[in-house]
């Protein structure tokens, strides 16, 4: 145990499946940065300086263990000319699919990251964060997995039908998306991101069958992650992954982001020594948690997954809703410091 670790040391220690000074906390807040600075969400996410400043201020306020380079889910679709739908109280959503017909996939070409202005905003924000934080804390970059991005590219129903009924077009779409994803991830690493969070909710076992993971999402992940020049964390964004943990470990990822619908202790046991676990506070319930409920949830999560390291406390979705109050976030932070100190004891939740 090393008291007074930096966030980077704390995270690297736990990812090495050792116990750091305390359980690391990734408070994955994005939109709260706009509130912190008093600007509308749309304005905030169009200004890299605001994004970087928002992240830095949030970390100063909460003292958690990372900066988050995630802007909004449809960023990569916007980079291809897709519409983004903005609301003033929640995350931006993707508009009408850009691939109107499956046949449009034949003409699709890999995205040129250098030419995509929306991605440039995220890269600049990461550069600005890196200038300020250096190596004291990790900066987490984000990509949508090539396997999950088509939900926004063509619509969920059309994509499911493509997977099952048009294997040749599915394969073509995956190859185009893999090229784009690799370039996008490596550009973020070059800009200063420490690691890449690979969001892959469609691979979750409640979205596509576990027995298909090897053939679909797992195959795509193996091809993609092998070419990303830095560490990766695979996040299922509230989806279940316990049935596919052994296969996920084979993709080369270091961390798995898990669902509030799964038992954290069982997941930790399944991942032991192979994958670190990130999760799994329920972000939706968090909106109405009392301080006591927040503390109880933190304590239970640490007790289930904290022992031995290999665990980062976080929410279960990869983005905390804007409706979660500052007081609740403060309570999560305080409870993590109280219950997450190593060595864990029964009193502290371990």
């Amino acid at each position: 145990m090393s008291p007074g670790m930096s966030s980077m040391q704390r995270v690297l220690t736990t990812l090495g499946h050792q116990e750091p000074d305390r359980v690391p906390l990734f408070l994955l807040v994005t939109m709260h940065g706009a509130r912190e600075l008093g600007v509308p969400l749309r304005e905030y996410f169009h200004d890299p300086a605001l994004i970087a400043e928002g992240q830095l201020r949030l970390r100063a306020r909460y003292g958690d263990d990372c900066l988050y380079g995630f802007l909004y889910a449809p960023l990569e679709v916007e980079a291809r000319g897709g519409d983004v739908v903005w609301v003033d109280d929640g995350p931006a959503n993707s508009g009408e699919p850009i691939l109107r017909r499956p046949e449009d996939i034949r003409d699709l070409q890999p995205l040129r990251v250098a030419d995509a202005a929306p991605l440039g905003r995220a890269l600049t924000a990461i550069e600005l964060m890196k200038e300020r934080v250096a190596d004291e804390a990790p900066i987490v970059g984000v990509v949508m997995s090539p396997f999950s991005l088509p939900v926004m590219q063509m619509g969920f129903d059309a994509y499911i039908e493509l997977m099952y009924e048009r294997p040749e077009l599915f394969e073509r779409l995956m190859q185009v998306n893999i090229e784009s994803c690799v370039d996008w991830a490596n550009a973020q690493l070059a800009a200063g991101a420490t690691a890449i969070c690979y969001f892959d909710p469609v691979s979750a076992s409640d979205i596509t069958p576990p027995e298909r993971y090897e053939q679909w999402g797992g195959a795509v992940a193996r091809q993609t992650l092998a070419r990303i020049q830095g560490p990766t964390a695979t996040h299922f964004a509230s989806g279940r992954c316990l049935p596919i943990v052994p296969e996920v470990a084979e993709t080369g990822t270091a961390v798995v982001g898990v669902s509030a619908h799964e038992e954290l202790g069982r997941l930790k046991a399944a991942c032991a020594g192979r994958l670190s676990v990130l999760g799994n506070l329920n972000g939706i319930e968090m909106c109405r948690w009392t301080p006591e409920e927040a503390r109880a949830a933190v304590r239970a999560a640490i007790a289930a997954a904290g022992p031995g390291g290999g665990f980062i406390l976080s929410d279960n979705h990869g983005e905390i809703p804007l409706q979660v109050a500052d007081e609740t976030l403060q309570e999560i932070v305080a409870a993590t410091r109280e219950y997450g100190r190593y060595p864990l004891t029964e009193a502290s939740g371990g």
Binding site: D157, I160, Y164, S205, I207, T208, P209, P210, R212, R240
Partner: peptide, 17 residues
């Protein structure tokens, strides 16, 4: 079966169609 985690959403969707 989807509620129990035995089937995936994609299977439920295709069955419904």
């Amino acid at each position: 079966r989807w509620e129990r985690g035995e089937l995936a959403l994609s299977q439920v969707y295709m069955c419904g169609r």
